[in-house]
Nucleic acid binder design. Structure first.
Lengths: 219, 219
DNA sequence: ACCTGAACACCGTTCAAGT
DNA sequence: ACCTGAACACCGTTCAAGT
């Protein structure tokens, strides 16, 4: 079904793949806020408008950068127990995407784009069914896990970005004062070692507990 | 401690509160992508640069729009059972923020800004402790619930936005073809009624299950 | 102290024209 | 078919000056 390319008309000077590659490099090196159509055009050696002959708009270009990303991450060994497979696959999504903060931003656009990533929802849904869930329940469980992973990735990467910023000043440093101890006793007593508590957060522990609640009890 | 305002210098023409109010109205009516400093300045009857005398930058203005939001939402009746209190409070966060999609975007900036919202983490952490968790575990549980709620809100509001768009065309309509049935059997068989499965997703059911897994078993 | 004006260095995208 | 050039309608923010 792959038709020969017609040689009619003007020969193309820039390839779609080239555009996507440049975009992905900018995203990886400088993040999503650094990517602009004009910047990509310049680095690809063309006019901004030349890009629009290859992609519909900026959102499409962003989503195209996701293609092939999953294939570049080594697939993990999956255990035999289906419950453990859910955990390991979910953790793999988290650790895999941790290295690509820009991908989390792009995934927020809400459209599936990378076919090579689909084995992960497939695996989780299949394992949930193997654990005794109906097909519908399994889809819901996957969705719940994805919402959690997305949120965790968002705040983890955002915090890492802010930590890397040399001249960051908190916007509201003293939202909580000792005077709030009456109304908010736990938050005030915990606010001192909030940073340490954040470090102690273990995504694997949380995922395991979540999965325990979401899946039917083991037989 | 509230010092009298010095009347020295030029009298102010625009009040900070006025700026924040206009910004919040734009956010509520047209969403976060419609808010610009220049737009706010115009509607407030001033130069773009006048705003910078009252706020540090656009991010600070965005975060200021959150102040007082929680107080505008009626506080729910909380049940006596601490486990149920966690659920009801978490659900309240979800339903409360569902009406303010822009607030979800602003919360993604990652800084706490609305003091009136702090009773919710306080309540969840206190209830988790009442259920037998340590202070540290309770903070982790809250964080896990928040990550999930944030992800759920993100995708729910994004989907609602796209559904409201009159001329939306999916970017990648046929990512999954019948030929993928070998590799991705569940996804291909489920893709037909994916919309219906999405409608059947019940956040209360998922939260209850999550909480069951996260909290120690009831005595 | 508070605000203006001009400027800098950008954006995404449409449209008409060229090869 | 593919690309350019010019234009439209915007951005956030700095800086020097005015009252």
């Amino acid at each position: 079904m792959t038709a020969e390319k017609r040689a009619a008309g003007r020969p193309r000077r820039i390839e779609k793949q080239q555009i996507v590659d440049v975009a992905r490099r900018i995203l990886q090196e400088e993040g999503v806020q650094a990517l602009s159509m004009r910047r990509v055009a310049k680095e690809v050696g063309a006019t901004p408008m030349a890009l629009y002959h290859h992609v519909r708009d900026k959102d499409e270009l962003l989503m195209l950068t996701l293609a092939g990303l999953a294939a570049s991450i080594p697939r993990p060994e999956l255990p035999a127990d289906p419950r453990e497979r859910v955990l390991v696959t979910a953790l793999h999504i988290f650790t895999g995407l941790s290295g690509f903060p820009w991908a989390v931003d792009v995934l927020g656009l809400g459209e599936l784009t990378d076919k090579g990533a689909l084995w992960m929802p497939e695996e989780i849904i299949a394992s949930c069914i193997a654990c005794g869930q109906t097909h519908e329940e399994a889809v819901h469980t996957y969705r719940t896990l994805w919402y959690f992973l997305y949120g965790a990735l968002r705040f983890t990467t955002a915090e890492a970005r802010r930590a890397a910023d040399p001249d960051r000043r908190p916007f509201f440093p003293n939202l909580l004062t000792p005077a709030d101890a009456d109304e908010l006793p736990h938050l005030t007593s915990l606010s001192a070692d909030w940073q340490e508590l954040t470090r102690g957060y273990d995504i694997a522990v949380q995922l395991r507990a979540m999965i325990d609640g979401l899946l039917p009890p083991a037989t």
